[in-house]
Amino acid sequence: MSDLVEVKNLVRDFDVSAPWLNRVLERKPKAILQAVSNVSFNIARNSVYALVGESGSGKSTIGKIIVGLLPPTAGTIKIDGIDPAHEPDKAKIAAMQVGIQMIFQDPYASLNPRWKVGDIIAEPVTARGGKADGLAQKLLEQVGLSGADVNKYPHEFSGGQRQRICIARALAAEPKLIVCDEPTSALDVSVQAQVLNLMSDLREEFGLTYLFISHDLTIVQHMADTVGVLYLGRLIEEAPREALFADPKHPYTKMLLEAAPKLDGFGREVEPPKGEIPDPIHPPTGCAYHPRCPIAVDRCTKERPEMEQKGKGRVACFLAV
């Protein structure tokens, strides 16, 4: 069987120019922000693919494109072998889209405060005109809440419980793929563990596939099977979890792993990384990381490295071995 998700040469541009009139008056050029730049990767069935990267690296944008909330500027996405942009059979696209769900970062904003929890959970079914009797109760129990909670409103729940409700809503669609955009970054550590455990359990029970978006390397290390590292909209390294954490190839990945605070790093003196993420509207030429890279050579400033198989993963760096 082919991979569940195939992303090929994905590009997404945002027009961030000033309003037309201001632009004309101030003679400014159009400003295009390339949030996702030529990204290709596959997600195997029943696996967890993690996208990591710092803020603005394009993680959420990729997630939204995959679930269909944003159209891509260029490139193709195939889910279950269906490319929604080129598939003539509308019914097939609709059936495919039912199977993709998303869990968002902010558990407070992802539930409509005026809706009862039962209606929220049943929405994937009712929005498409289906009947959902008793479904919400069943799902609430499945995510560790009480079936009697269907008549409550979201404000009666804590952050972790809300995230469970979001998970229940996603499950109502009987999904194949769930895109999780930083699902625990608004939660406390002790609650985060509950949610991560629940997600692992459900994955086994329902054979789910996750695209797991996070900036927290410790969570990624716990959850992921494969990890893709993004920098400024570019995928710069991809490898199975063990390989990536044991032997990162790209200097940026190395820096990220090094800079992340360690629980056992008592009094650790790290050489602080150089520089900051450049302006995404005017990214550096060649390899986007070259201005901060400790090993950059002349070629890095001129030519953009392609992803190449090196060791167990793929890396976009001329100097990786």
């Binding site: 609709a94 929005a127 809503r169």
Partner: peptide, 9 residues
């Protein structure tokens, strides 16, 4: 929550 509703068709 609006994005979730859009996602759900």
């Amino acid at each position: 929550y609006v994005q979730a509703a859009r996602l759900n068709g």
